[in-house]
């Protein structure tokens, strides 16, 4: 993959501008749907940067996983929870934003300073370029075998857990005694304190929404 150096520089500039502006859009735009699409743009631009860095496999993984899965998941979430909500005004919100902006700017300056004054061991060995995919495979089955296997447990557990939490339920009874259960904490909220219904019969709450005050 030969790219003339000036072209490469232009590509880097364009992609990083897209990343930076897109990221600002993600956090600043009032409409969350635009934010989600901009997030997809950021992910794609980052994949482009990986291509510039000679990492075609990771770029493909970035597109497939981030754009294809995470971003779509986020769009679905927005669709599912998208109720027009009048967010109540909070006093001092602007001040909070400015203050946290200052803190983040400070953090940015710090990170930038560290990036520039550290004597990184450049230039390193020559990049292996297109053989990267083979090398990644070798790593995954040699020195990174343990995290690779553990990641499979993580994914399995995340999948099961996400299904359990997100599905609507078939089972909501105490499996041993057969009494109805509400899938809530056994420690009930303070206000409706359960005096008349002695345990272990866990009383079924009429509504799952328990307001403390």
């Amino acid at each position: 993959m030969t790219i003339a150096s000036s072209t490469q520089f232009l590509c880097f500039a364009a992609l990083s501008a897209a990343v930076a502006i897109g990221a600002l859009g993600v956090v600043l735009l009032p409409n969350i749907v635009y934010s989600a699409f901009l997030l997809g743009g950021v992910f794609l631009s980052v994949a482009g940067l990986y291509l510039l860095l000679n990492a075609s496999f990771v770029a493909a993984a970035q597109v497939l996983v981030y754009v294809g899965a995470v971003n779509v998941l986020i769009l679905f979430a927005i669709m599912l929870v998208n109720k027009k909500e009048a967010m109540a005004e909070i006093p001092g919100l602007a001040l909070r934003r400015v203050l946290s902006g200052a803190v983040c700017a400070g953090l940015f300056v710090l990170l930038l300073r560290v990036a520039f004054i550290t004597p990184w061991a450049t230039p390193g060995p020559e990049p292996i370029g297109d053989e990267a995919t083979i090398r990644i495979g070798e790593h995954l089955f040699s020195d990174y075998l343990l995290p690779f296997e553990l990641a499979s447990v993580l994914l399995l557990m995340a999948m099961i857990g996400a299904i359990v939490l997100a599905r609507r339920d078939v089972l909501s009874a105490d499996i041993v005694t057969g009494e109805p259960a509400d899938q809530g904490l056994i420690e009930k909220s303070r206000t409706p304190l359960l005096l008349e219904t002695p345990a272990p019969a866990s009383p079924a709450m009429p509504t799952p929404v328990l307001e403390k005050r």
């Binding site: 860095l53 990492a55 450049t122 990049p127 292996i128 090398r135 790593h139």
Partner: peptide, 9 residues
């Protein structure tokens, strides 16, 4: 990975 660790990535 690309600049410092080009071989082992």
């Amino acid at each position: 990975s690309s600049y410092l660790d080009g071989q082992l990535i």
